[in-house]
Amino acid sequence: MCSSRQTTQKPDFPARTAPRVGSLRELDAAIATCRACPRLVAWREEAARVKRRAFRDWEYWARPVPGFGPSDAPLAIVGLAPAAHGGNRTGRIFTGDPSGDALYAALYDIGLASQPTATHRGDGLELYGVRITVPVHCAPPDNRPTTGERDTCRPWLARELELLRPALRVIVVLGAFAWQALRPVLAEAGWQLPRPRPVFGHGAEVLLAHPGGGRPLHMVGGYHPSQRNMSTRTLTPAMLRDVLRRGADLAELPARPHHGGPRC
């Protein structure tokens, strides 16, 4: 766990900093320094101090977790926030928790990831044409960020999508929270959301026009691969693969050799 700690930052740190960064590498580095939300800072550091018994030998990341994937990805996947003992521990989004186990296995099955597991930064995992990010970059208590925390964090997501924009064709949105969080970001970026406002659902699809002559953007909704959704079969591995494959098809990602039979 990083030992250099400030007490706080002004809430406008993301809004002041995000527009100035010129690359995803710079953005990821800036995100990791953010301390704009006192409740989230306290929670992520408390989780790293207390730890889970299974991870007592880990040095937790305990900072905001940036996005993961190439800068020229035509497909983005947007989730919710890091898990306290997942991304907050490993320093990589959807890594080291059951949600990540489900997501990366599905990406591997359809040829968009180099391996089916994600355990830690530096484990060799690569994504092909896919960038994964979140509206809230710190682990929230009970996996529930407040609307204020979501809005404070919004400039990071807005700048990330802006930097991805030259290649971006599709966003797969995992969960209703991300669906709601994306709407103002996309509108501010110039894409036109249809009226009435599109309703979230698994498999929902929306095409957003860009009046400035830019490339239109597809949004595809999917249930979040949370442990609860997967254990109750609200979302199955096959359902998750299908929505990700739909996103890949719309993004015109090239087919890759199949990695064997999919997990049930």
Results as ranks from 00 to 15, higher is better:
Leu125Trp: 07
Thr152Trp: 03
Arg169Tyr: 09
Arg144Thr: 14
Pro140Cys: 02
Glu160Pro: 01
Pro141Asp: 13
Asp142Val: 09
Val172Glu: 04
Gly124Leu: 07
Thr147His: 12
Val170Ala: 14
Leu157Trp: 13
Leu168Tyr: 05
Glu160Asp: 06
Ala139Met: 07
Leu186Met: 04
Leu125Asp: 09
Thr119His: 11
Thr133Cys: 06
Tyr128Cys: 01
Val134Met: 12
Ala181Arg: 02
Gly175Ile: 00
Glu149Gln: 11
Trp156Tyr: 09
Tyr128Phe: 13
Leu161Glu: 04
Val172Lys: 02
Val136Gly: 09
Val173Ile: 10
Glu149Tyr: 03
Gly148Val: 10
Pro184Tyr: 12
Gly124Met: 02
Val173Pro: 11
Arg183Ala: 10
Val134Ser: 12
Leu182Arg: 09
Pro155Cys: 05
Val170Ser: 15
Asp142Pro: 01
His137Phe: 07
Leu161Gln: 10
Phe177Lys: 12
Glu149Val: 02
Thr133Val: 04
His137Ser: 10
Arg159Ser: 07
Glu126Pro: 04
Leu186Tyr: 02
Asn143Ile: 12
Ala158Met: 11
Val134Thr: 14
Asp123Lys: 07
Arg165Phe: 05
Gln180Lys: 13
Thr117Gly: 08
Thr152Pro: 02
Pro145Tyr: 03
Arg165Ser: 15
Pro166Met: 05
Ala178Phe: 07
Thr146Pro: 05
Cys138Met: 15
Pro155Met: 10
Arg121Tyr: 10
Pro141Glu: 12
Thr147Asp: 13
Ala178Tyr: 06
Cys153His: 15
Arg159Phe: 11
Ala118His: 06
Arg121Trp: 12
Trp156Pro: 02
Gly122Val: 10
Gly129Asp: 03
Ala158Lys: 12
Val136Lys: 11
Cys153Ile: 08
Arg165Val: 10
Gly148Ala: 14
Pro140Arg: 04
Pro155Gln: 10
Asn143Phe: 15
Arg150Glu: 14
Ala158Ser: 10
Arg121Leu: 12
Asp151Met: 00
His120Asn: 13
Thr146Glu: 08
Pro116Trp: 04
Ile132Gly: 00
His120Pro: 08
Thr152Ile: 11
Pro135Leu: 10
Ala187Phe: 00
Pro184Asp: 07
Arg144Pro: 06
Asp142Arg: 15
Val136Gln: 14
Arg150Met: 13
Ala167Tyr: 08
Leu163Cys: 01
Glu188Pro: 04
Asn143Glu: 15
Arg183Gln: 15
Asp123Met: 05
Val130Pro: 04
Glu162Cys: 08
Arg183Phe: 01
Thr117Glu: 14
Val136Ala: 10
Leu164Asp: 04
Ile171Glu: 01
Ile171Pro: 05
Leu186Ile: 01
Arg150Ser: 13
His120Leu: 11
Tyr128Val: 00
Pro116Cys: 06
Gln180Tyr: 11
Thr117Lys: 09
Asp123Glu: 05
Thr117Tyr: 05
Pro140Thr: 02
Val130Gly: 04
Leu182Thr: 10
Tyr128Lys: 05
Gln180Pro: 06
Leu182Asn: 13
Glu126Trp: 08
Trp156Gly: 00
Leu186Gln: 00
Asp123His: 06
Ala167Trp: 13
Asp151Asn: 01
Pro141Thr: 02
